[in-house]
Design a protein around this nucleic acid. Sequence first.
DNA 1: CTGTTAGCGCATTCAA
DNA 2: TTGAATGCGCTAACAG
Lengths: 313, 313
Amino acid sequence: MSTINDVSRLAGVSKATVSRVLSGSRGVKEASRLAVLKAAEELNYRPNVIAQSLLSQSTGCIGVICAQENINQSTAYLYALEKQLSQHQKHLLLRFASSQVEVQNALDELSCGLCDDVVIIGARFELEVPHENVIVVDCMDADASNSIQFDHAFAAETACNYLISQGRRQIAVITPTANRFAEHILLGYKLALENNFLPFNRNLVFMENSISSLVALQMLMNNSTTLNFNALLVADELEAQRVITQLQAFNKQVPKDIMVFSLAGSLNLPGVPAIPAIEYPVEVMAARIVKWLTQEPQSTPVPQLMRGDLVVP
Amino acid sequence: MSTINDVSRLAGVSKATVSRVLSGSRGVKEASRLAVLKAAEELNYRPNVIAQSLLSQSTGCIGVICAQENINQSTAYLYALEKQLSQHQKHLLLRFASSQVEVQNALDELSCGLCDDVVIIGARFELEVPHENVIVVDCMDADASNSIQFDHAFAAETACNYLISQGRRQIAVITPTANRFAEHILLGYKLALENNFLPFNRNLVFMENSISSLVALQMLMNNSTTLNFNALLVADELEAQRVITQLQAFNKQVPKDIMVFSLAGSLNLPGVPAIPAIEYPVEVMAARIVKWLTQEPQSTPVPQLMRGDLVVP
DNA sequence: CTGTTAGCGCATTCAA
DNA sequence: TTGAATGCGCTAACAG
């Protein structure tokens, strides 16, 4: 690779002039400007971004630590984020991590001058991050400064309102873990019931930690004669797919007997029946992240809450 | 962020000694070694990788340009690659690109000293790349040096052999585009027929460029009485899902009436019937890529051909 | 308008 | 065993 020295030599000017031409070409004689351009073209010169980074103390790289278990959603996020970042001449440094220590490792390796900022997405475990130049998205973070969170309570409330509008008044809910997410879902769930003058039945709610959704569903079905539920709220589209399969094994029609609702995204595949869901617009999220990253650091950003859209088949 | 100067000052030694301790700490008095370690710990000092990169002329970053249209497969590739790369202390710089110019743009932006090497994955269009420090994987590249290709001919042959072993002797094949991939598939297809003493029927083969798989299927169905095919080879799991849905709309049972075979991967979702497929082991591929990247540059690598595994439900 | 100089943070000489 | 000096490639400040 040729350097600025090669260009300056070939063009017969100094390095500074070369730099001036290629950066902000102001105050340069047309003759030398052309000479530089010609020499650069000839040598196929491209300024070394590493040297520029050393000087400017910023690399234009954004570390993205993807802790999202749902691999479908990961890709959607990544795609949207990369699109936004490259539009802003930023680079996406990708890491996957599935536990607190892995996140910490990734963070360490990215925070040695390589990245200007780090985005952590979708962690479903506690994480202790120095919230300096790192923003967390859809994560279970203790202090929610520098974070973009999804409004799961609102999602659950919207879901219930929709289900009730469809004549479903016995709504069961299954979440994979008992954490802050589950709490918020429960909040929205209860609120919707209350607003619709429906009773809350604890037996319809499964938020145990060590119980898989299929076991929970089994327990629901065992009591189905007394519970008589006709709608089921689950965490995401994969959970939905699982429970739908299970329900069909129980000879239950979906959505006729039991309407299944996904609280995060839906599977859009030909041949797979679409289900009602809350969709979080990944493009909006990506744009918001990038806006945050590219704005002036001094303007303290406030934590953001994102609401998804109700999507019905 | 503290620099090596801060550490050297605090430890009361020179920058060189600090560097020696933190790099290859040989030939340093124990006392100063401890002093440096203590100071570094105190200041939470981390060597600036950008400065190191400028010196060593290598960043440890690998650009990955993902041109794969099938988003499911993209994620699998990315996950496997990232896992391998981070194990080798390398970083994954992600770009998506869906056309030749986008690939070229990405390549330009990554080849300014930011990346040591670039990997292009899954491009289904011609691409003119300077095969220096860039390797192409599963791409339609003219000169196949520096490339890892999947053996689509072998995949098609394996598929046909399997289908024939299942008593399917009228095998139709639909590929999305008429390019080198299609040619290879046709090669393997013909070979399998030949080896099994079956006639080749041109009407069973759809490799038109501007014809969607659903239109092709429609045309097949229109002639189904004369053609009477009972197996269908398609490019990947998404195509498979599409045609299966369409077939069911035609009141055809899958796989009873028509067995659908995916030449690249299968959808593994509960509730979605599994179909026979060729699976390319992404971990093996990722390992091979990283081995290639980390080996000595002078040892000229030979283009590689990867064969997938037959997976039957 | 342009060339010289300095320095970003670091590792590697070369002396001492 | 150590420190001073050099330079990776580049841009900004200063001086002409």
